[in-house]
């Protein structure tokens, strides 16, 4: 398990916490210094959240906490008690299925290595939940806390715009869809 800083001394005592992740309740005994990222990956097997820097800059560890994109490397697990945590596994509709956002990322090829991708998809979900019709600038702003080294962002921005367009279309009566 990773820790946030090396300076902290190990504590022998574990702590019991309850987390709500993707709608399921989990009771866990963990060291209080365990970050939410490590907890999700190492204790719950949810490996879609990735470590890139573990100091809050790259955004690869992003999950949604009460619908808001949060860096799980900067949060200790006990701090997440009582909140609804959503990971990439939670927005995937079912085995073999893709959410409209995930499908749009595939359509535009909004990724290469895929390492930053789950976080980008979650950020897009959070953005579109708040703002179904984002401008290019708003999309750029929304993903600006997530570093992608592969794509130069163009096809990510296009994916989110495409997802927004399709979701809006899907919510319209068929005769009004383009």
């Amino acid at each position: 398990m990773h820790t946030l800083t090396r300076k902290e001394k190990p504590k022998e005592s574990h702590m019991r916490i309850e987390l709500t992740v993707n709608g399921a309740e989990h009771t866990l005994d963990i060291e209080p210094r365990t970050t939410l990222l490590d907890c999700l990956r190492d204790h719950l097997g949810l490996t879609g959240a990735h470590a890139g820097c573990e100091h809050g800059v790259c955004g690869a560890c992003t999950v949604l906490v009460d619908g808001v994109a949060v860096r799980s490397c900067l949060m200790f697990s006990p701090q997440a008690e009582g909140a609804a945590i959503t990971t990439i596994e939670g927005v995937t509709p079912g085995p073999g299925e893709l959410s409209p956002v995930q499908d749009a990322f595939c359509e535009t090829h909004g990724m290469q290595c895929g390492y930053c991708t789950p976080a980008m998809v979650l950020v897009a979900h959070a953005l579109l939940a708040d703002n179904p019709e984002p401008t290019r600038e708003q999309i750029v702003e929304a993903i600006s806390g997530n570093i992608c080294r592969c794509t130069g962002y163009a096809q990510i921005v296009e994916a989110i715009a495409l997802a927004a367009e399709r979701i809006r279309g899907a919510n319209r009566p068929p005769e009004l869809r383009k």
């Binding site: 990956r41 949810l46 490996t47 879609g48 959240a49 990735h50 470590a51 990971t87 990439i88 596994e89 995937t92 893709l98 995930q102 499908d103 990322f105 595939c106 359509e107 090829h109 990724m111 290595c113 895929g114 390492y115 991708t117 789950p118 998809v121």
Partner: peptide, 19 residues
Amino acid sequence: RRVREDRRFVVGKGKFVAD
């Protein structure tokens, strides 16, 4: 055409070494 690798990555099912 779509890139076949993308399907596993958008759902967080890439198999990276830390996994």
